[in-house]
Write a protein that binds this DNA or RNA. Structure first.
Lengths: 233, 233
DNA sequence: TTTGACTATAAGTATATACATATTAATCTG
DNA sequence: CAGATTAATATGTATATACTTATAGTCAAA
C-alpha cells in the first residue's frame, strides 16, 4: 500500500477528501489511524495530523482520542459568516453613513429582556433605540439593552457621536455571543421608523454578547426591506 | 523581558488575547514576530505559530509573510453556522418528518435562474418544488433547480422517497456554495403552500452549490413564520 | 520617475522525537 | 457479576531543526 508521496498537508487533505467523495471511506466508517496514513502517504504523522485536524474543523471528520477518526455521518457543512458592523458595511458599499438616537433611557427592563440579560430584579439597564441610515435612507434600526455593571465608562460616552455598537466594539472586550436570524412582519412602529409599508417582511438579527459570565448587551436589529446577508463556504 | 513560562499554545493564545483586550497591543499595531514571542514566552516558535494561526482564523489577527502579524483593525467576528439539512433539523427536535413533491418538471429556466446557474441558452434544467413538513405542518418549501449535466444519475432517482436535498448530499460531492439570508413578504402562493396568512414576514435562504466550476443546484428555501436560525461564537 | 532585480525577513511548513491525555478494552477484585 | 483497576492505544501537543515561500524594502538601471 504505497500510496505515492504526499509531502504537504494540503495534498494529504486533498487525497483524504477524494477518498471520502469517492466513497472509498464511507460516512460513519473509521479511517486508518494517523500513523498508518503517515506510512502510506510517506510523510510525517504531524503532517497527517494537520490535514485531518483541518477537515475535522470543517465538520467532515469526527475525531476522538483512542477511538480514532471517522467520516462524519451527517457532514454538517459549516459556513463562517462575518458579523456586520453596520457602519463599515454601509461605507463598504460606498454609501454615506449616519445614525440617530431615537431613544436613550435608563430603566428597569421588561421581564423578557431581564431574563435574557440575566440581571437581578429592579436593576436598571441602559436602553437605546438607534436608526442607522445609508445615503440618508433608513437601513436598519437597533433596539439595544446594555448592562452598565458590565460596561464601565458607558455613562460618560456620547453615543450620539459614536454609535453604541462601535463604542462597545472599540472599548469592551467580549468573549462570545449568540445570534439568531429570523423574519418578522412590519408593524406600525417598524413601518414608521424604516419608512416602509406595514406588513412587509423584515430581516431580523438578535444578538447577545457576553464576557466573564456577564451579558454585556443584547440587541435586536431590524433591517429595511431588501436586506440580504451573504456568505460562502 | 522574561514573560514567564507559557508551555501550551492555549496559554500563549490566552496571553495574546489578554494583551489585545488590555490594549497593550492596539488595533492596527504590529506585534513582535514569532521568534521574539517564542523567546519571551520561553516556548518553541511552533507553539507561538499555532496560537497566532488560530487567532488569525477567527479574524482577530492579520498575518502576512515577511510583513508580520498585526492586530486586526476592524476585528470582524466570524460565526460559524451549520447549514441545516431539513430532515435532520426536524427530527433533531423530536418531530416527525415528511415531504411532498409539488412540482417536478424539466424545462428551460427563466433568465434569472439561467444566469445564476450559468448554463447555456436552451438547456433544460430539472425544476422541483418540495414542501417539507414537521409533525404534518408545513415547515419550509424549497424551489430548486438542478443542472442534470453536473448530476449524473439524478434522472433515475426517485425523489419522492428521498428528497432532492438528501439525495444530492449523499451522492454528489461538492466543493463549495454561497448563501444568502433575507426576508420576504408572503404572497398568495407562499400563504397557500405554507398555510399562513398573506403578508406575513418569511425567512428565506438562497443557496447555490458548485463543484468543478459547475453550478450543481440552486435552491430557495422559504420558511414558515416563526422560524429562527441560531448560532453562537 | 518608473521599472525591475535583488535581498533580507517573517510566516509557513515538514520532520523526528518525545511525552501528555483521553478513552476504550481488558483484567482483576470483592 | 458489578465495580474498580490497569493496560493499551489513537489523538493531542511540545520541541529543535531545517527548509520553503511570499513579499516589503532597497537599490540600481532605464
Amino acid at each position: 500500500m504505497s500510496g505515492g508521496d504526499f509531502n504537504s498537508w494540503q495534498s494529504v487533505q486533498a487525497e483524504v477528501l477524494r477518498r471520502i467523495n469517492a466513497r472509498e471511506w464511507k460516512p460513519g466508517e473509521f479511517i486508518p489511524n494517523e500513523a498508518e496514513l503517515a506510512l502510506e502517504f510517506n510523510c510525517a504523522r504531524a503532517t497527517v495530523n494537520r490535514a485531518l485536524r483541518a477537515l475535522a474543523e470543517t465538520g467532515l471528520l469526527d475525531r476522538r482520542r483512542k477511538a480514532g477518526t471517522r467520516v462524519a455521518l451527517h457532514p454538517v457543512r459549516k459556513a463562517t459568516l462575518a458579523i456586520p458592523v453596520i457602519r463599515y458595511e454601509i461605507e463598504g458599499k460606498g454609501q454615506s453613513y449616519r445614525h440617530t438616537v431615537l431613544v436613550e433611557e435608563r430603566l428597569v427592563p421588561p421581564s423578557g429582556i431581564r431574563a435574557r440579560m440575566r440581571t437581578n430584579p429592579g436593576v436598571k439597564l441602559l436602553h437605546l433605540v438607534t436608526l442607522h441610515l445609508a445615503d440618508g435612507k433608513p437601513y436598519v434600526f437597533g433596539d439595544r439593552w446594555i448592562n452598565p455593571d458590565a460596561v464601565p465608562g458607558i455613562e460618560s460616552a456620547d453615543l450620539s457621536v459614536q454609535s453604541a455598537n462601535e463604542w462597545l466594539v472599540a472599548n469592551i472586550p467580549f468573549e462570545g455571543g449568540d445570534f439568531s436570524f429570523s423574519a418578522m412582519t412590519a408593524g406600525k412602529r417598524e413601518a414608521e421608523i424604516l419608512a416602509c409599508k406595514e406588513g412587509e417582511g423584515l430581516f431580523v438579527i438578535e444578538r447577545s454578547t457576553w464576557a466573564k459570565d456577564q451579558i454585556i448587551t443584547s440587541v435586536r436589529l431590524t433591517f429595511a426591506p431588501g436586506y440580504r446577508m451573504h456568505t460562502e463556504i
